[in-house]
Computed example of a mutant assay.
Amino acid sequence: MATEDTPPDGEAERVTAFWRELGLPGLVDVHTHFMPDRVLDKVWAYFDAAGPLVGRSWPITYRMREEQRLEVLRSFGVRAFTAMLYPHKPAMAAWLNAWAADFAARTPDCLHTATFFPEPEAADYVEQAVRQGARVFKAHVQVGGYDPNDALLEPVWGLLAEAGVPVVAHCGSGPVPGKHTGPEPIARLLARHPRLRLVVAHMGMPEYGDFLDLAARHPGVRLDTTMAFTDFSEATAPFPPSELPRLADFGDRILFGSDYPNLPYPYLHALEALARLDLGRDWLRAVCHDNAAALFGPAPAAPRTEGTDTAEV
């Protein structure tokens, strides 16, 4: 069950100072999780038990009610965010999409998010979600345990490529490998759908270089920074120093993501981890705001939180 925990003292002020010093209007976070309470409670229970797909102790820093989680995110100056939700079995995605459509309708600063699973109905409910205004999809190859090249998903990928709707895909083998994780299945997918706007979650951790190679071959591929470069991830899946110059080269295709609220550390640390890469202010501005703004375009006005200015992406 969600509780009444509070974020670390003074964190909102320090996060706000981070983006203001860069001359930004706020942050865009492309990898945040909002989902039905009973689903999120089960996700948190899985993290608490250090389940097989977690592999280590993983305390939830922002274990709060939905209303409080939104308030905290807005207090950080996050102008737009997502509701990354995903099924782990058939006959679940359509229900999650219905919840997400309602959540987006009552949460204007959330980019309307949807998902899918390899099942006969997938093309129909994905098409419906696109018609309803879904602006981003989530694919979780690791949790779903499916091959992204499953024939049941072929019309889904084609539809999303044609519509130009981005897909954030957890397809790397972190924190532990899955049967269909890694760059090879995604390479085969992109060979058939080169126009797909695919955002590789977690920078493709731990196969960072391989997914940067895919980005080099496919202009539509982007990567999100979720949990990468932090002390937590560097302890087990360090980013290779030899690849740092490539981060600068792909500065226009890297998007800030946090994994909020499921972080095992304060939100601020995710931003500080980017800053300590020492890739420059222009790189930080692009990653923390401008690249996502270019990808998703203007967003509706959001509810105001005192001390912040949330309007468009």
Rank of each mutant, 00 (worst) to 15 (best):
D5Q: 08
D5I: 01
P7N: 10
D9E: 12
V15D: 14
V15E: 08
T16L: 06
F18W: 10
E21N: 07
L22F: 13
L24V: 15
L27Y: 14
V28M: 15
V28R: 09
V30G: 14
T32P: 02
T32N: 09
F34M: 05
M35Y: 12
P36G: 14
R38V: 05
V39W: 13
V39A: 14
L40T: 06
L40N: 11
D41K: 01
V43G: 10
F47S: 00
R56M: 04
W58F: 09
T61S: 08
R63G: 00
E66D: 12
E67V: 15
Q68P: 01
R74K: 07
A80L: 11
F81S: 01
F81A: 04
T82L: 09
A83N: 12
A83I: 09
L85H: 15
Y86C: 12
H88T: 13
H88W: 08
P90N: 05
L96R: 08
A98L: 05
L111G: 07
T113C: 09
F116S: 03
E119Y: 12
A123M: 05
Q128I: 01
Q128M: 00
A129D: 05
A129E: 01
A129R: 04
A129L: 09
V130T: 07
R131H: 09
A134P: 08
V136D: 01
H140C: 07
G145N: 06
N149H: 13
E154K: 01
P155L: 06
V156L: 03
W157N: 06
W157G: 02
L160Q: 05
A161D: 14
A163M: 05
P166V: 07
V167G: 01
V168N: 04
G172H: 00
G174V: 03
K179T: 10
P185I: 03
R188K: 12
V199I: 15
V200H: 02
M203Y: 11
P206M: 03
E207W: 11
L212E: 01
L212H: 07
P219V: 08
G220T: 14
D224V: 06
T226K: 05
T226S: 15
M227S: 09
F229W: 13
T230V: 04
T230D: 03
S233A: 10
P238I: 01
F239Q: 01
P240R: 07
E243D: 11
L247F: 10
D249E: 15
D249N: 13
G251Q: 14
L255M: 15
L255I: 12
S258R: 03
D259H: 10
P261F: 01
P261H: 02
N262W: 06
P266I: 09
Y267D: 00
L268H: 08
H269C: 02
A270D: 14
E272R: 08
A275Y: 01
R276V: 15
L279M: 00
G280C: 12
R281T: 10
R281W: 02
D282I: 04
D282E: 13
L284A: 11
L284K: 05
A286P: 06
A286V: 04
A286K: 11
V287M: 10
D290Q: 10
D290L: 06
N291A: 07
A294S: 06
A294E: 13
F296C: 03
F296K: 07
P300G: 05
P300M: 04
A302Q: 07
R304H: 10
T310L: 15
A311P: 03
E312M: 13
E312K: 12
V313R: 15
V313Y: 14
